[in-house]
Amino acid sequence: MERIVGRPAPEFTMPAVMINGEDFGEVKLNDYKGKWLVMFFYPLDFTFVCPTEIKAYSDKFEKFKAAGAEVLAVSTDSEHSHKAWIKGDLGQLRFPLASDRTKSTARDYGVLIEEEGIALRGLFIIDPEGVVRYSVVHDLGIGRSVEETLRVLKALQAGGLCPVDWNEGDELL
């Protein structure tokens, strides 16, 4: 697989359920130009680990906003499935859920499990110029740490060399 970090983020346009959980819309990479974007893929709606992650990112959304970042969640489910999930189990979110029904975005970001048609848990931080600065991909059964995502985002924004376990306010190397 070709590396993605340090390269322009692959373009995307996807239907989505917008932040109010009611309206359908469309999200494009260009919508986030000039902002940091934390984009994460998750396998499927109506599953077990996925809602824990999505709710956690929504709960910490103000911290991402304060850091000048937007959040976008993506799966290969339809936007109609997303809406039903939001209205049923998931509840109000603070960012859109995008639908990659064509699987092209998951494929472009290197997270698609072709034979299953679902995405691995891939997380990408894209800078305001549209360059991928961070990527982590792992297996389906393990949720991500929102705090670690925030720590890495702030480290990327610090503009210097960040030693192990660096946190905002710590000295750079």
Rank of each mutant, 00 (worst) to 15 (best):
L140H: 01
E129W: 01
L29I: 05
P10M: 08
I4K: 09
G110S: 09
Q92H: 10
S135L: 12
F12R: 00
R107T: 10
S99P: 01
D127H: 08
K154R: 15
G159C: 07
L153G: 07
V17G: 04
P163T: 14
Y42H: 13
I86N: 06
A158M: 07
V136N: 11
A106R: 12
P15L: 00
S104C: 02
C162T: 15
A67I: 05
Y109C: 02
E70P: 01
L44A: 10
P10D: 08
C162H: 03
F46L: 13
P51K: 05
V164D: 09
A98Y: 13
T102C: 02
L97I: 04
H82W: 12
S145F: 00
V152Q: 09
D170I: 05
A56V: 01
I126M: 05
V132F: 05
R151F: 10
L90N: 08
S135C: 12
L161T: 13
R121V: 01
E129F: 02
N167Q: 14
A73I: 03
G6I: 12
R7N: 13
A84N: 10
A16Y: 11
C162A: 14
E114Q: 10
I126P: 00
C162R: 14
S78I: 13
R151K: 13
A56N: 11
R151H: 06
R133I: 03
D77L: 06
Y32V: 04
T13A: 13
E11P: 09
E53H: 03
L90M: 10
S135Y: 12
S104R: 14
E115S: 11
L29T: 13
L37F: 04
I126K: 08
H80L: 11
D45Y: 04
L173F: 13
G110M: 11
S78E: 11
L90P: 07
L37A: 10
K154M: 00
R133W: 03
E147R: 03
W36T: 04
Y109E: 06
E62F: 05
E79Q: 15
A155L: 01
F48R: 04
F95T: 02
S135F: 08
V38H: 04
L161W: 14
F24W: 04
P96T: 06
P96G: 10
T52M: 09
G160Y: 13
R101P: 00
E129K: 15
Y109N: 05
A73N: 09
W36L: 07
K65N: 10
V146Y: 03
G130V: 07
G88E: 15
G160V: 05
P8K: 13
D77E: 12
K60L: 07
V27F: 11
T105G: 02
L90A: 03
L93P: 02
S58D: 09
D165I: 02
D139A: 03
D89F: 06
E22L: 11
G160I: 08
K87A: 15
E11D: 15
G34C: 11
A66Y: 00
K35R: 15
A9K: 01
